[in-house]
């Protein structure tokens, strides 16, 4: 019998992180695009700001990798 709990748990950990990042980047990205249109010199800063919420998906990935490795 395959134990589906571990991969599903790992998937949730990663997937929710990705959704969270996506939602945050959606808002930052659209605001950032507006800012860059008005002030092109802020492009560099906006790229960094858009990258900030990626922490969520990265931590999600780490947790899911740990679930897969440590619980198997």
């Amino acid at each position: 019998m395959v134990d589906w709990g571990i991969p599903i748990g790992a998937g949730i950990a990663f997937g929710m992180g990705a959704i969270g990042t996506g939602m945050a980047q959606m808002k930052i990205g659209s605001a950032g695009a507006g800012t860059v249109a008005e002030r092109p010199e802020t492009f560099g800063l906006m790229v960094v700001l858009v990258a900030i919420p990626e922490t969520l998906v990265i931590l999600g990935f780490v947790v899911s990798a740990m679930i897969m490795i440590m619980l198997e």
Partner: peptide, 16 residues
């Protein structure tokens, strides 16, 4: 603490 954990991206992006 969150900042420190954020360095996990070094491993995560490397893995990807």
């Amino acid at each position: 603490v969150g900042n420190i954990l954020s360095y996990a991206r070094i491993m995560a992006i490397g893995m990807a």
